[in-house]
Design a protein around this nucleic acid. Structure first.
Lengths: 161, 161
DNA sequence: CGGCAGTATCTGCCTCGGCAGTGTATCCTA
DNA sequence: TAGGATACACTGCCGAGGCAGATACTGCCG
């Protein structure tokens, strides 16, 4: 039992800190886009599509842990700007293959150094070992929370039946 | 330089991890409210008001690092539910003093153990020392990012003049 | 072949929060 | 002491994302 009810304060709780940190990191990354009008999630989608040319929309949804409805609209915007294209796969017409178009790739690659620079500024107060530690702790926290989330949705689906 | 452009991957970046963690923590905390219809931010506001009875709206805004417009609406909801009350201070009529009403206090205190339990579940994969480390690293990250944010807004206000 | 379950994508609806602007009160300074 | 600067709370507007349901497609099993 790390936290106790009678000494629990918002500002020293992981819940508050991680939320505040996420908000600041988002601002930090989006500042690197400098008027190019990308959101953090759009950026993340482009980055994943570069490394995984064979992704479908649901792959992306799963990897980003993003709402499927929100993802559809996000892809609409990227497609309108001709950064990606959608293509129904002929063998399974439910699937939409996503392709990073040249414009999308070049935009992504021109922004990447700027984003990396911002990220390095953010972690510039840490030693490399500390960044490793922080990364590791966050990964373990996420893994832990995903397990309980799965339990919960499993439970809900069982109740539904 | 911790991150490099040619090896940068979304999933191992602090930016992605902290965002994902914040989303999961929010879900985790709100699950503890079990149909009582509180949001994470409303909860945080009630918690701060318990510890600081003399807060004004702008105090809360500053402590929560929350948008002032969003905070006004959040307080509207809490006031409608008779959890808090607003009172204009007579000596400085710009200020709105916030008071945690008995209903708000009892709701907060009945939920607190549940929230603390959820938080403890979240950090149950860590040793106490590791939670300390994570807390410390997040606090330093936040401090670092707040500095650059201040620089930026200072710059913007200078440009405006 | 027909129905049924499961999956992928998309749409409508709603809430939350960011941003810019408004009105009012107070402070500061010439 | 008048007038501008600042602070505080609030409002309108808009975009992002969560949730539930609709639609389209596939695969399975009788």
């Amino acid at each position: 039992m790390y936290y106790q009810s009678d000494t629990y304060r918002a500002h020293s709780s992981i819940g508050y800190l991680v939320r505040r940190g996420a908000s600041l990191m988002r601002t930090q990354v989006e500042a690197a886009f400098a008027g190019r009008g990308l959101t953090f999630m759009q950026w993340a989608a482009l980055l994943l599509l570069r490394d995984h040319p064979a992704y479908t929309a649901s792959d992306l949804c799963r990897e980003l842990h993003h709402d499927s409805g929100a993802l559809t609209r996000l892809l609409d915007q990227l497609e309108t700007r001709a950064l990606i294209s959608r293509e129904r796969r002929s063998t399974d017409r439910r699937l939409v293959m996503l392709v990073l178009l040249p414009a999308g790739r070049s935009l992504m690659e021109s922004l990447l150094p700027l984003v990396v620079e911002r990220m390095n500024e953010a972690v510039s107060v840490f030693t490399p070992a500390e960044v490793d530690t922080l990364t590791n702790l966050l990964e373990r926290l996420i893994t832990r929370l995903e397990v309980t989330e799965d339990d919960r949705s499993l439970l809900l689906s069982r109740i539904a039946k």
